[in-house]
Nucleic acid binder design. Structure first.
Lengths: 199, 199, 199, 199
DNA sequence: AATGAATGAGGGTTCATTCAT
DNA sequence: GATGAATGAACCCTCATTCAT
């Protein structure tokens, strides 16, 4: 799945991560036991504890990994466009992420409502920097743009929280509307948010 | 916290609800066992099952109760104002709710990220109409206003999700800013959202 | 169902017995709780203990009642025949009982393997003679016949055990043969048993 | 009680089996809890579930083991005799088994009334072939004899049911007669059964 | 006689964690 | 590093029984 995961030295770790992911999204996190994970991964019980502290630990690693993956893909996709208007670049990223989540809802199910500010701040902190902090890249990109805003961090925060919290119920349950129906409203709101905060 | 709960007939039920609430916000829901609850409430284990089906059941009753309480208080407070502009009435309700949550953060801790669309829809449905469905009142109020909007349900949905998700981290962790700092941005965003959807 | 059961004074007792019976044969004895019984019977929990000591008590009453009922019916049927040969009278009773069990397998399910010597001796002893001891009638009839046998009690014992134990699996599971297939063998065996013990 | 059980690899399993057996015949199966078993066996509760699915599982293993043991011993003893008459060989086996049960009544108490057709069929089937299916040997021996019978399976079935059901009350309670008194009658009946079915 | 809320010991079962190999 | 048998505390839940009304 990525550089650090699948090298030969960490076959067991990778097996544990991948099978834990499958089980988490299939049975739910609470119903998945460490026994389940090691059995599916084909390793011994004790081996789990060589790589992870406990179930929360492996869960956090998975969430972080998935989030970073999506952001990374979003950036790559953005680079291939010719968009110059900053607001439209943000809209593009938003749309890209929404489509990712729509396509692979397992990520939403895993992160529940945690695909938000808390995830970035807390997970990133606890990590031993074996993963890039793409969120910082995102913020910095924001600040590098020509247009300046009253408070960049709060603006980014509000956009992320707004998008992730509204898309959760829409994608998973189609409530109160499908993502397709919802999107125009989301984009309009983001534009309005940014416009309001322009300096 | 009062009328419905503490009549004499339901002393045990009340004791269970109150002590479950304390434990949920102190230790977290997952870490709280039914044994913990009955011990703290000073009743026998079997008694729990006379009043609640399982832990989820008591949790849902608590969340519902808290949500309805806040909405109810917000309406009462609104009635005492002289606000006529519809947007400002919504802002008032929002502010009132935010202040409630700020004052009693236990509610946020209890509902975690569940104080949102799903809660209203699901919790309200599962209840035996012993509580008013205040959410419907809220929507209907919206629709009774003079100003019309493109899609009222989506607008309400976006506002609620936006407010509850942004205030969570702010109130509980002061991240990325305190509620006081954040409020003006939130209000501006709500005004912009509503303006954008005016017909 | 019978004289002592359904008089007005014992409505509750009757309700408990009948509903316990239904539950025992539906869910099995072990899986039936006293709560189940009182709920189905529409009486309060404490009422159960006014009439029965515990679950074993009500179970024994039921078995006794059912056994006596069958024997009683068998005797009545025999009286209507013109059979004079003693062995054939015994065969007739046997056949009648087998047909009863075949028709209402619930009795077999209730008594499990207990429809045998043990039932008669033990249940009868514990009972407060509110039921006729039809088994004694059966033995006495045997002894009143013209033909004498080496040891009447042992002969009756062997016949009863033989019949009840062989029919159990046959009727309930059709193993190793259906009752229809099995009957001729059973009758031949009974005749042989009796012949062997003639004085 | 030996070969298969007590090798070093299965010390815990053996301890569980032996102590479960003791408790089953002392307190009865229903009154014996898994807690009782593990406590007496001196192992942790979870260990039980490493070796057995539940209480029924360990019970079935015990019954199977005991039944096979007795049949196996009976065959060995028969091989040492010079009996050639087939009926007398069957009588010998019967007598041997009765003496075993008389000597070790615990087996009867354990199997209750289940030492019968159902046991053979069901227990044997559920087992992972780590035990010989001695019942089949018994039937085949029957069929390999020179004398032919109308229906071998029914004949074997009737003999087994007859013997096990009659000896139960006799051995455990001496009712209606001691085994010594009863035996001649049983043997006569078996001889009569077989004679009746000869072709 | 009848009730049913309350009890609390005890049931079966799970599972994170350890540690000798 | 890797194992997996063993642990035992903790879990949820049941239910026979009591007793104040």
């Amino acid at each position: 799945m990525s550089s650090k995961w699948d090298n030969n030295k960490n076959q067991k770790r990778t097996a544990l991560l991948e099978n834990a992911f499958d089980l988490f999204i299939t049975k739910g996190i609470n119903k998945t036991s460490i026994s389940d994970i090691v059995e599916k991964a084909g390793v011994a019980k004790g081996t789990f504890y060589l790589y992870f502290k406990d179930k929360d630990d492996i869960r956090n690693r998975l969430i972080l990994h998935k989030i970073n993956h999506i952001f990374s893909e979003a950036e790559k996709a953005l680079a291939k466009t010719t968009l110059t208007d900053f607001t439209e670049r943000i809209i593009f990223i938003t749309g890209f992420i929404l489509d990712c989540l729509q396509e692979d809802t397992s990520i939403l199910a895993l992160t529940a409502k945690n695909l938000n500010w808390g995830s970035f701040k807390r997970v990133v902190k606890s990590d031993k920097n074996d993963e890039l902090n793409l969120y910082d890249l995102y913020v910095s990109q924001f600040e590098n743009g020509r247009q300046k805003y009253k408070n960049t961090e709060i603006l980014v925060y509000m956009i992320i929280e707004f998008i992730t919290s509204t898309c959760y119920s829409s994608i998973l349950y189609g409530e109160p509307a499908s993502l397709t129906e919802l999107k125009p409203y989301l984009y309009d709101t983001i534009r309005a948010m940014m416009k309001t905060q322009e300096l």
